[in-house]
């Protein structure tokens, strides 16, 4: 998974002292997050419910309901936080949502094709037939029915279908940095394996892609071996380690980290 360039290149993503909150809400949810991700790396982000994982993902993607109150984020060496969400996406950030929105009347095929063309020049649009080949191939990998492409985005999808649809979009849009917010939650064992294998295949095919995988469970890490594991507690990275940290959390829970943190937090 290690890219040759990682030692000479600046980090793909560099988060320094990031603080953030729900727009206009008084209290901060993120209280100084530091995190660096290099090309080709897979990082897992864990942490108790409400610790701020989704908030971090939303701040990275430019969600209008959240605002940074301090710190900075550099993506490919450039400040990220002032950019609109579409600009961030075109520069290569992809967020697989924990709860993706429904878009009535817009088919997945139409949506994804428009999104793929949005990052190309007007005269360089992807030929329709190439697009459908690509789409059907990716759908087959994710074991989705071909007719699924004509369904309206997330409308009436089961939890698992929503997650698969997010991964399908990710596979077609080929981001530099994929942030996956609990993509593994709500999936049955088979779907979990499929989705995980999809991510692994993508990472193998595009060795420079980095992944920030937000999860509660060790399960998915059986398929996707993280280079680093971070634990977010009350808005700060309380602990970072290798893949073994996830195992430890699986068997011991978060309390031992909270306890370690407690004196410092007072």
């Amino acid at each position: 998974m290690i890219d040759d360039r990682q030692h000479i290149d600046a980090p793909l993503l560099s988060i320094r002292g990031l603080r953030g909150r729900v727009t206009d809400a008084p209290e901060e949810i993120l209280r100084g997050v530091d995190l660096e991700i290099r090309r080709g790396e897979i990082h897992a982000l864990m942490g108790p419910n409400g610790s701020g994982k989704s908030t971090l993902a939303k701040l990275l993607s430019g969600h209008p309901g959240y605002e940074a109150t301090g710190g900075e984020v550099l993506f490919r060496g450039e400040p990220l936080l002032a950019l609109d969400p579409d600009e961030r996406a075109r520069r290569g950030i992809f967020l697989a949502f924990q709860y993706p929105m429904e878009i009535p009347g817009v088919s997945i095929a139409n949506f994804v094709r428009t999104a793929m063309n949005a990052r190309r020049a007007a005269e360089d649009e992807i030929p329709v037939l190439d697009f459908y080949d690509d789409l059907q191939a990716q759908m087959a990998t994710l074991q989705m029915e071909p007719t699924f492409a004509e369904r309206f985005v997330n409308e009436g999808f089961s939890g698992g279908e929503k997650k698969r649809s997010e991964i399908l979009q990710m596979a077609l849009l080929k981001p530099e940095l994929a942030v996956m917010d609990e993509t593994d939650s709500g999936l049955d064992v088979d779907a979990l394996r499929l989705v995980a294998e999809g991510v692994v295949a993508l990472a193998r095919e595009r060795t420079s892609m980095a992944v920030l995988l937000i999860t509660h469970y060790q399960r998915i890490l059986n398929y996707i071996t993280p280079d680093r594991v971070h634990v977010l507690v009350r808005g700060r990275i309380a602990r970072s380690g290798g893949a073994e940290l996830a195992m430890e959390i699986e068997s011991r829970g978060y309390d031992f980290i909270r306890e370690e943190l407690a004196p410092a937090a007072v």
Binding site: H63, P64, D86, M101, P104, G105, V106, V112, Q169, L173
Partner: peptide, 26 residues
Amino acid sequence: LQIFYLMSRGLTREAAERMLVLGFFE
């Protein structure tokens, strides 16, 4: 939030609005 979702895939705000309108008429 729908506009944000579409923009988070790279569509400009205008393109996102257009897409919502087409969906609305569907």
